[in-house]
Design a protein around this nucleic acid. Structure first.
Lengths: 404, 404
DNA sequence: CTTTAAATCACTAAAAGTTATTTATTGCGA
DNA sequence: TCGCAATAAATAACTTTTAGTGATTTAAAG
């Protein structure tokens, strides 16, 4: 390709043309996404399901096998005809780093191609500071890289970062001195962490990343869902046509900002009703121990009444939020996940569904409620999956035209 | 292509593969969309803007010229080098029918390739009945076809229909006997109108269709906007990455159903605040003439206080609706249009912007407000543009991979 | 040993890219 | 003012990449 740094005319972002390598890349992504969703598939299955010809499917699969992205399983006998050879993703095929930055802790993980966390590091704090996080990543990246088998080290394709938007504007809520969180305003995650790790860095909103994890690893077939992740803050994400929707500025699914009608008039943001920050405040006000809710394995039974009140508020807020989201787009599922014990989450989902059914849904298509399948780790896993999206997952964009 | 009606395995809707004709179709759509947006472009411009090679752009343009979809303009001299030959869409290249079904009237139009309405027919009623509409389309299609120059008759590519969702559920609001609107429940627009006209039929929600018109013919460069169309009902549409979002069930942008906080607690749907139905009711209650608002050219000055009250209510509702929509997706523009005089619409937009600025926008990306450029005809125009989407417009789906 | 289905080989078709060439201008120097 | 260099558009000729087709091979069931 020639030098085009001078004389280059802005290419129109909307009406991009495509070429044959784009076509092949698309088909490879389609194949990989399909295998990921089904666990394992024979070449013939892939041809049928993608609509590609058998030959094309065969060629693509062979090349993916050569790149060690897929491996062959035991041939399946028992049916008439030549046995089919199921192919599945090679867990060692690709590795990626994921960094979750939370209100009380951060986590750095190494994830393999099938979504297993291979190893991790955690740091706790009372509130997040840029300098601490950067140091943590620098040390963690070195240590975790050392733990990766040498032959696999060049399989690492990038670092994904899940971080709350506008951390600096939440100084009061998280009890941090404004001066300490101010550096977040100028923090360029892509540039600074890429300099440290030497990896391509992909950043996303934390709840959006969690949504990505639910989409890729949640094991559900639902291709259109609205997703809520309830942690210190409440946020969300969208999946439309099977693709994570990041938004024009990466701020799609800012569901924590949804205006929720108050019972006594006016409105408040969802985050004021449905965040664990809110629960923490309520616990403190009733002289309980707010650190209890950091234990996502416990049963939170000590919280009794305070928890019940929070669940009432949160579920009412979430019900309105789902209603608003479904007015904007006709989602099939509304999925709620969060940094809390499963039984509490399930109560939250049930109660939200009940609240939802009391609301005026005229003109809205029906929606199914369920809790997330990924759970507490969704943000770290989602962060680590961001580099996969960039290379191996269908993110949007299909040339139509029936193949086959 | 071989017979696959038997033995056919469901092709996976998400991970479709693609082929070379899909690639070419994509590139042709990209080229046509680009020309539409820019008015006219030389082949070399197209190559630069799509990222395609000059040769490919040339080949595609020649084939589009052969199909009479584009025509060449006067060569542009005055710059060094061979003069460039700007190409533009051929207005006669494609014709389509559009049917708007409204609460008080329906309209059938013939639209050309550049969005001009060539001719039209209108029918008025107190409420819409399936049998009347069907008869109207049958007669109108015959008459309008007769008005098309014989050589252009086979350029007609389809009929688009813009109709409110769930008409039958609004019997009370539109003052119709439930038995008279019940047939809408079983009305299959695609099948029945296709049988009458012999054309492919594409149906969409009326406000979604209006949004399509704003997107294609609005002349703005904004690729991400939320759109409201205020008529008897209030509805909306979404454009993301330059593409109309229709939704899983065609019910995306059901913005009339958005829950809006009431000042005195609880919530109501946007449509209760911001529809002309609401204004009509208010006029009737204050002993005014509700038919005044059917005159979209008038100045509505007779309505004075009633109109002011409605504008207050409507703009407050719309401000909340924009806030909710922008929490779900970070739109760049919020566009409001409707079946009302321009000056009234502009007041509505200004007041909505002011209301919006009083709301809590923490965590939300900034959004621009403006009134629609298409205006009252948006639904008819949008309906007629639906067949274009099916064939000639980039609707989604780009194979990535930098061409060139 | 026939039928079936997976997988692949050898070849064709379609699309886009590359390089060189043609064409029609402007602009500049003699 | 003429003529030639520079420039940019357009395209012809050819190459490369990709997918599809049809025939063939393989390995199993019945």
């Amino acid at each position: 390709m020639s030098e085009t740094s001078l004389n280059e005319v802005a290419v129109d972002g909307r009406s991009r043309g495509s070429n044959q390598s784009g076509l092949r890349a698309h088909n490879e992504r389609a194949v990989l996404s399909l295998i990921r969703r089904h666990g394992e598939l024979a070449k013939a299955d892939i041809a049928r399901r993608t609509g590609l010809s058998a030959q094309t499917a065969s060629v693509i699969m062979r090349s993916l096998e050569n790149e060690s992205l897929v491996i062959r399983d035991q041939p399946r006998r028992g049916r008439v005809g030549q046995p089919s050879v199921p192919m599945r993703l090679n867990p060692d095929g690709v590795l990626s780093f994921g960094l979750k930055i939370g209100r009380r802790s951060s986590e750095l993980v190494v994830m393999d191609f099938v979504g297993q966390i291979r190893s991790n590091r955690t740091i706790r704090y009372t509130y997040p500071r840029v300098s601490d996080i950067v140091a943590f990543v620098e040390r963690g990246h070195k240590e975790l890289t050392a733990e990766i088998a040498p032959v696999l080290r060049d399989r690492v394709i990038g670092l994904g970062v899940a971080l709350p938007f506008d951390i600096w504007s939440w100084a009061e809520e998280i009890g941090a001195p404004p001066a300490d969180v101010a550096p977040w305003r100028d923090f360029d995650a892509e540039a600074e962490l890429s300099a440290i790790t030497g990896l391509p860095v992909y950043a996303a909103n934390d709840a959006t990343a969690a949504c990505a994890a639910e989409n890729v690893f949640g094991g559900s077939d639902c291709a259109n869902f609205v997703y809520f992740f309830i942690a210190a803050f409440a946020g969300g994400g969208l999946v439309i046509n099977g693709d994570l929707v990041q938004g024009r500025l990466g701020n799609a699914g800012a569901l924590g900002s949804l205006p929720i009608p108050r019972k006594d008039g006016g409105s408040g943001q969802l985050i004021e009703f449905a965040s664990l920050n809110r629960l923490e405040t309520a616990i403190t006000e009733s002289d309980g121990d707010p650190d209890l809710i950091l234990d996502t394995e416990g049963d939170w039974s000590e919280l009794s009444g305070t928890l019940d009140n929070w669940l009432n508020e949160a579920s009412r807020g979430l019900a309105y939020a789902v209603l608003s989201a479904c007015s904007v787009y006709d989602f099939e599922d509304a999925i709620i996940d969060g940094a809390m014990p499963r039984p509490i989450l399930d109560r939250l989902v049930r109660q939200t569904r009940r609240e939802y059914e009391t609301l005026n849904r005229k003109g809205i298509s029906p929606v199914r409620f369920r809790s997330g399948n990924v759970g507490v780790n969704a943000r770290s896993l989602g962060a680590a999956s961001l580099p996969l999206f960039a290379r191996f997952l269908l993110d949007q964009r299909i040339t139509s035209g029936e193949a086959g």
